[in-house]
């Protein structure tokens, strides 16, 4: 708090043009209130893109689905035996992998 107060007063004294006056702020808020009162302007301008979220409950009292061995594998998560490379939608992006990525050689060679 004290830090922000110091920086504020410094700005006010040394560079008044960067500090908004209360009147200008009131004007801005007044404009925002009237703009916000008109529905969907921002949406129409494409400024905001919105998506919902799906509902989920994660706790339950059932056993995990599938086979008894799915949770018991030892090989695929030991660092020295890691053989997987990311193979998802990341391959479709403009720059799918960074040049420094572990395992990226296989990914690039397959393209």
């Amino acid at each position: 708090m004290s830090k922000s107060k110091i920086s504020q007063s410094e700005i006010t004294e040394t560079n008044t043009s960067r500090t908004m006056t209360a009147a200008a702020m009131a004007l801005a808020l007044g404009s925002a209130i009237s703009i916000a009162a008109v529905p969907d302007v921002a949406h129409a301008e494409g400024m905001e893109k919105c998506y919902g979220v799906s509902l989920a409950g994660k706790n339950d009292c059932a056993a995990g689905p599938g086979t008894t061995c799915a949770g018991t594998s030892t090989i695929d998560y030991q660092g020295n035996a890691w053989t997987l490379v990311p193979k998802g939608t990341c391959e479709e992006t403009a720059s799918p992998t960074s040049p420094t990525g572990f395992g990226q050689l296989e990914a690039f060679e397959e393209k």
Partner: peptide, 15 residues
């Protein structure tokens, strides 16, 4: 015993 191992690891990965 593997059933319990599976339940824990798979359910947490699912979460």
């Amino acid at each position: 015993f593997a059933v319990y191992r599976n339940n824990i690891v798979v359910s947490l990965i699912d979460a």
